[in-house]
C-alpha cells in the first residue's frame, strides 16, 4: 500500500506516518528514508528530535537525499517511510554546486513513484504550504509549484491520502488499514 500524508507544520504528520509504517510492516523490515541534509545546528536538533521519537519503533535509517528509489532496490519486502517530500524536493531543486532546477518535480515524482512501486508498502510525508496570503518572490513560488506538482503525482498514485491537522486526520482517498 502507498500512503501520502500532508498538512501544516507541527500538526502530527510524522507521528501518524511512523505509526502507519509500523502497522503496515507487520513486523517485517522497516526503513526510514532520511532525506534531510542538516545545514546548521537548528537542523541537527530537529533531526535528533525525530530520531529520538523513532527510537524503539524498529526503523533502520537509510540516508538518501536524492535518488530514493535506490533504497528499495534489493529490499522488496520492505516498508519505507519517507519524511519528507519537501526536503527531497529542496535537495533536487538546489544543488550543492549552487545551481537551481526550477522544473525538478518530474524528476522528484519519478524517484518517489519508483520507490513506491518497488516497496511492499510506503508512506510519504509532505508539507502543505499553499494557503496563505503572502506574496512570494519567483524562486519561492517555483518551489511551491514544484512541491505541489510532486504532491499531486503522489496523491494520484497513492491508495490512501491523509490530511493531518492538530494531531487529527482527514481521509481524502482510500481507507485506513485495519
Amino acid at each position: 500500500m502507498t500512503v501520502f500524508i500532508s498538512g501544516g507544520s507541527k500538526s502530527g504528520k510524522s507521528a501518524l506516518a511512523e505509526d502507519l509504517a509500523v502497522k503496515l510492516s507487520g513486523g517485517k523490515a522497516l526503513y526510514y528514508v532520511a532525506t534531510m541534509v542538516p545545514k546548521d545546528s537548528e537542523d541537527a536538533v530537529r533531526v535528533e528530535k525525530h530520531r529520538l521519537a523513532r527510537r524503539g519503533k524498529g526503523f533502520e535509517t537509510l540516508e538518501c537525499p536524492k535518488l530514493v528509489s535506490r533504497c528499495a532496490e534489493g529490499r522488496p519486502q520492505g516498508t519505507f517511510l519517507l519524511d519528507s517530500v519537501t526536503a527531497l524536493l529542496a535537495n533536487m531543486m538546489f544543488a550543492e554546486d549552487g545551481s537551481v532546477d526550477e522544473n525538478c518535480s518530474a524528476r522528484a515524482s519519478e524517484e518517489l513513484l519508483a520507490l513506491a512501486a518497488l516497496a511492499a508498502d510506503s508512506v510519504f510525508v509532505s508539507d502543505f504550504i499553499y494557503a496563505d496570503a503572502e506574496e512570494y518572490e519567483e524562486l519561492t513560488e517555483a518551489f511551491r509549484r514544484e512541491l505541489a506538482l510532486t504532491d499531486r503525482a503522489l496523491a494520484k498514485a497513492a491508495d490512501l491520502v491523509i490530511e493531518v491537522c492538530c494531531g487529527q486526520y482527514m481521509i481524502h482517498k482510500g481507507e485506513m488499514p485495519a
Binding site: G8, Y130, A131, D132, A133, E134, E135
Partner: peptide, 18 residues
C-alpha cells in the same frame, strides 16, 4: 484560491484583502 492559513499579514493592504 484559499489564502487564509498563514499568519496575519504585516502589510495592511494584504490584511484588508485577506
Amino acid at each position: 484560491r484559499e489564502i487564509f492559513s498563514g499568519v496575519v499579514p504585516v502589510d495592511p493592504e494584504i490584511r484588508r484583502f485577506r
